[in-house]
Amino acid sequence: MDKVMSDKRMIALYVIPSLLLILAIIYLPIVLTGYYGLMEWDGISKMTFIGLDNYATLLQDEKFWSSVNHSLLFAVLSAVFLIVYMAVALVLAGRIRGANLFRKIYLIPMLLSSVAIAQLWLKIYHPTTGILNDLLASLGFKNTPEWLADPSVVLGALFVPILWQYAGFYILIYYAAFKNIPGSLVEAARIDGASSLQIALRIKVPLIAEVIKVTIVLAVVGSLKYFDLIYVMTDGGPNGASEVMASYMYHKAFRGFDFGYGSAIGFFLLLICLVATWGIRKLTATKDSIQYS
């Protein structure tokens, strides 16, 4: 029996095609993006090696750093909003009639393409016929801004559809985690006279610490690589006011034909995502994981 299940040929047959695929399409490119970052290259003619020039320019590039700031702002805001989602999930996981229906409704936007969502919100924000300014006008507001053309509000205006899109996803995850907590623990605390708020903050939230960590990583790393929605809605504009790391890379490479510089940005994006993942895990590390089964 052991012999059949440790047949090297069969193992190779089952694993190697997939392994080659991810090595060629995921791992080779991330090495190459660092390498291309050392080149001057327009994507067509031959590359010339320029050492760390691209990376040095990157450190001085104000537009790049403003795109990094925008990405970081989205990351921090997304992480902060996790608290709201957690609160909603706490309520849903209590005795709420129709909780299952609610979490499904919340999830719907997350299933749609970012392009469709972006096009829909372009219409919502439309200065004259959009539903948002319609609504504000009927409430008596005048001089409503041109949401996506005004540099001072554009980031906020972009963040709203992002929230709308992902809220249901995080609520769903927290809901599942809260539902996993054994009822006996909560019941014991209640008999000891703990209030619902105490139970939520002292028992339920600490018990899902692992899940919270995962969601922080997802929210932060997800925000750092936002692209589709911003590309469609503002394309980084007006005048770079909503440029993020991925869109800046795309513009430099596929519009400016500076593939070497674009690769350097891509490599930086990779590093910052890995560092963020590692850092969040490190910062939130607990000595021993909680077990309740």
């Binding site: 791992y27 291309y36 690589k225 891509g266 995502c273």
Partner: peptide, 17 residues
């Protein structure tokens, strides 16, 4: 680990490949 790698970082090399 493949889960953590941003698609965008692979875009230029993949295009070239």
């Amino acid at each position: 680990v493949g889960l953590m790698i941003p698609v965008h970082s692979t875009l230029i090399p993949l295009f070239n490949l």
